[in-house]
């Protein structure tokens, strides 16, 4: 038997659904669909789209390469201070992105902690596409680490231990036993990290600036366009919304 929904819960639930969906519907309503092909074909818009795609893919790949090993270390090794480290990894997740940008400047800027070293090497990331990738990885990495670490912690160790006693080297065990077992979580973490990277704004504009073609990703372009060409801003927003919906759908089918 289906229980009746109490009014005290139904009303706020309805309000929250409206709160979440109305802005998205309004965006779709205002999107100049007729002009969309023309707007999306514009060189400045294409430039922002390609830059965003490249940076988000690179940041996601970086997160994957660096994040899975970190998740493994956090979940599987008796590293002292592991719990503290796990907590600290979570901080960028909840940190206001603009604060992340300031922190990145203080670490990797010309006057930052590693500034002299980076200037010497001719590899200062500020104002470069690398800076965008770094900022995006900074905010995206925790999503991957936490997702994979959670899966590893929940995974029974029997199979790994059996493989170990049968004489497989630890790295081989990791690659052939552990990783396939947490594959779906790695995929989910990758999607989450990619979505976060694609939407990154605050850390990027603070750390990498905003220059079309080099550091002005789609979110930055939306912000800039909103001031003199709102229709183009709505069109680009609709594209990001579509990508978000696709990512969520992908995530759901993966999880199932």
């Amino acid at each position: 038997m289906r229980p009746r929904t109490p009014l005290l819960l139904a009303v706020p639930a309805g309000v929250s659904a409206v709160l979440l969906l109305l802005p998205l519907l309004a965006l779709l309503d205002r999107t100049p669909w007729g002009r969309l092909p023309g707007l999306l074909g514009r060189p400045d818009v294409q430039q922002a789209l390609w830059l965003s795609l490249r940076c988000a893919l690179a940041a996601t790949a970086l997160s994957l390469l660096l994040g899975v090993p970190l998740a493994w270390v956090l979940a599987r090794t008796p590293l002292p201070g592991r719990r503290v480290l796990r907590g600290l990894v979570t901080v960028p997740l909840v940190l206001p992105p603009v604060v992340g940008g300031v922190a990145l400047l203080l670490a990797f800027g010309r006057r930052g902690v590693l500034g002299d070293l980076l200037v010497e090497a001719g590899a200062v990331p500020a104002f470069t596409t690398w800076g965008v990738i770094l900022a995006e990885a900074f905010v995206a990495l925790p999503f991957l680490v936490l997702t994979v670490e959670g899966a590893l912690t929940a995974l029974p160790r029997d199979a790994e231990e059996v493989a170990g006693t049968l004489g497989s080297a630890p790295l081989r065990v990791f690659l052939t036993v552990t990783l396939p077992a947490v594959g779906p979580s790695v995929a989910a973490g990758t999607v989450l990290a990619g979505a976060r990277a694609l939407g990154e704004f605050g850390a990027t504009t603070t750390f990498a600036g905003s220059l079309p073609g080099r550091t002005q990703t789609v979110p930055l372009a939306v912000y800039a366009l909103l001031q003199d060409d709102p229709a183009a801003a709505y069109a680009l927003s609709a594209v990001l919304l579509a990508v978000s919906v696709l990512l969520v759908l992908g995530l759901r089918t993966r999880v199932r």
């Binding site: 800027g109 010309r110 006057r111 500020a126 104002f127 600036g209 905003s210 220059l211 800039a224």
Partner: peptide
């Protein structure tokens, strides 16, 4: 330019920070 800021204060900040 290496960046096009959305207000003059953004330009001043980038210079002040030494970036």
């Amino acid at each position: 330019p290496v960046s096009l800021e959305d207000a003059v204060t953004g330009v001043v900040t980038k210079v002040r920070l030494g970036e």
